[in-house]
Design a protein around this nucleic acid. Structure first.
Lengths: 108, 108
DNA sequence: TGACTATTTCACACAAATGCGAAATAGATG
DNA sequence: CATCTATTTCGCATTTGTGTGAAATAGTCA
């Protein structure tokens, strides 16, 4: 009965993931985190933005469920929480070249 | 040597795909088109927006390479140009339930 | 050609996102 | 406790996205 309502709700949630990834700086962050966790200071160096901007980008990604954070000592470390993102970006790259990509497992 | 410039450029392009999908109405359109092409009039009925809004959403999706359009007679039909999108949304749904999904082929 | 239909483009008002620097918070260390 | 460091939050200015209704475009058919 609430199937329609929850469908819209889930769509909203999925849209939030896409929207979070739909910004060059945030996409760059996620790509960088694909090879392992980083502290915020490293990400500030990576993208060319101020601390407050990077922090808010990380907040957006975390709220969408794309990233997880963990505080260790003075620093906060972020890592990817949604492994299928990198598979999908690989697909996008391949598609833009007209290629086909085989992917064994999408989500973990 | 222009590797950094083109990396940023490709990232911009991928971000455009994500941004295009990062809106509930556009995501709904893409989901609907997953089961086959539709004319604009059908999509206007589907999402609860006016013609001009739907038309612009379609323009955004087409510009990002997510959709293709074809004019037949008076009507314009849209269809998905990026098959991996539905695999990815399936992954998102599964991930939100803590599940794992097997995907055989991602891009075609 | 003129009327009709499907779709896009335009101009505008309003909401949301973005980046910045200053201030606030929180943990470590002397 | 005072201070230093890493990060987040806040207030603000600017830009970008969104929806609407009116006008423009394009194809079809009498």
């Amino acid at each position: 009965m609430k199937k329609n309502a929850s469908a819209a709700q889930r769509r909203q949630q999925r849209a939030a993931v896409f929207k979070a990834l739909g910004h060059p700086a945030r996409l760059q962050i996620v790509e960088e985190l694909g090879s392992g966790e980083r502290c915020v200071c490293e990400l500030v160096d990576l993208v060319g933005l101020g601390w407050s901007a990077v922090s808010r980008h990380l907040t957006v990604l975390k709220a969408a469920g794309v990233l997880e954070d963990e505080k260790r000592g003075l620093q906060v470390f972020y890592k990817v929480a949604l492994p299928c993102v990198s598979s999908f970006t690989a697909c996008l790259d391949a598609a833009s070249k007209g290629e086909t990509v085989e992917v064994r497992r999408c989500c973990a």
